[in-house]
């Protein structure tokens, strides 16, 4: 029988260090996801009901703030509640992955010091956990849309694509935060603030065309936010192209390109810190 051979040299390029097989990566991801799922509602009164209650509370809050207090107006003739909720499950997933995946290296450092495993698994495990929430929230949304307005998703394939994009983006950004946190924990300290800022700047509950109203030709700065394409993408997937006439296509493309960069560089950053991670953490 052929035995696996591990060869390690000090001068190995960083992308070769600690390369784990797909199987091993997935095994560890699943193990951590199981742990996080089992631990999730330990010692809570309502337990798993929170998976349903959380998106409902978030939706109620969005409606209260943006529809009742701020009175956002949208150009298209779709109901505002549907407009605002279409991208909400995606955003909630991204936010949770970022908030919990970012600090995951620091939180699990006692394990990192004792066992070698692909670090991305910790973040992907958080991703799997919040994917469950996303699916529950999406089902709630679709039931709500169909029950109240008789609407159904117009482009399900785009919807699946947006889900994948959001998931990859959030885990990529969490990886970037985690890589940074190995030496400097500052980013973890301000992570809740960052997430809140991103939510306010992301057109989840308002159209991204409002950027141009506010900033004129400088609106491209706000389109650097990779979540703009997420929000508009989820709405396109639900309402179809026809219903949303006013779309800033170059802006959304810019946002999507930024997202792809973050997806790639977040993972690369985590690989980069991998070789000396335990010495610095």
């Amino acid at each position: 029988m052929n035995k696996p051979i591990t060869e390690v040299q000090a001068k190995d390029p960083f992308w070769q260090v600690n390369q784990a097989s797909r199987k091993r990566s997935w095994q560890v991801t699943k193990a951590f996801a199981r742990r996080d799922l089992s631990l999730r509602y330990v010692q809570t009164r309502m337990g798993w009901l929170w998976v349903i209650a959380q998106p409902l509370l978030a939706a109620a809050l969005v409606l209260l703030v943006f529809s009742v207090i701020v009175k956002v107006e949208i150009a298209s003739d779709v109901p505002y509640a549907l407009y605002a909720f279409a991208a909400l499950p995606g955003w909630l997933m991204a936010q949770s992955i970022l908030l919990q995946g970012g600090p995951s290296l620091v939180h699990n450092q006692h394990i990192l010091r004792k066992i070698a495993f692909p670090k991305m698994a910790l973040i992907q495990a958080k991703g799997l956990v919040f994917m469950v929430d996303f699916l529950v929230a999406s089902i709630l949304f679709i039931a709500f849309a169909y029950g109240l307005y008789g609407s159904i998703p117009q482009a399900p394939i785009l919807w699946v694509f947006m889900m994948a994009y959001t998931w990859l983006l959030a885990t990529g950004m969490a990886a970037l935060v985690a890589a940074w946190s190995v030496k400097y924990r500052d980013l973890i300290a301000i992570l809740p603030f960052l997430a809140q800022g991103l939510f306010l700047l992301t057109p989840v509950a308002y159209p991204s065309t409002r950027y141009a109203d506010a900033l004129g030709t400088w609106d491209w700065v706000l389109y650097l936010n990779p979540f703009v394409s997420m929000a508009e993408g989820f709405r396109l997937a639900f309402f179809g192209i026809g219903d949303l006439a006013e779309l800033h296509v170059p802006g959304i493309t810019l946002s999507f390109a930024m997202g792809c960069l973050l997806i790639f560089f977040g993972r690369l950053a985590l690989r980069w810190v991998d070789r000396n991670l335990v010495d610095r953490l």
Partner: peptide, 16 residues
């Protein structure tokens, strides 16, 4: 065990 990376030289393991 691969927890940290060598600064010099290298090693070879045969087997799981």
């Amino acid at each position: 065990s691969g927890i940290t990376h060598p600064s010099e030289g290298g090693y070879r393991l045969e087997g799981q």
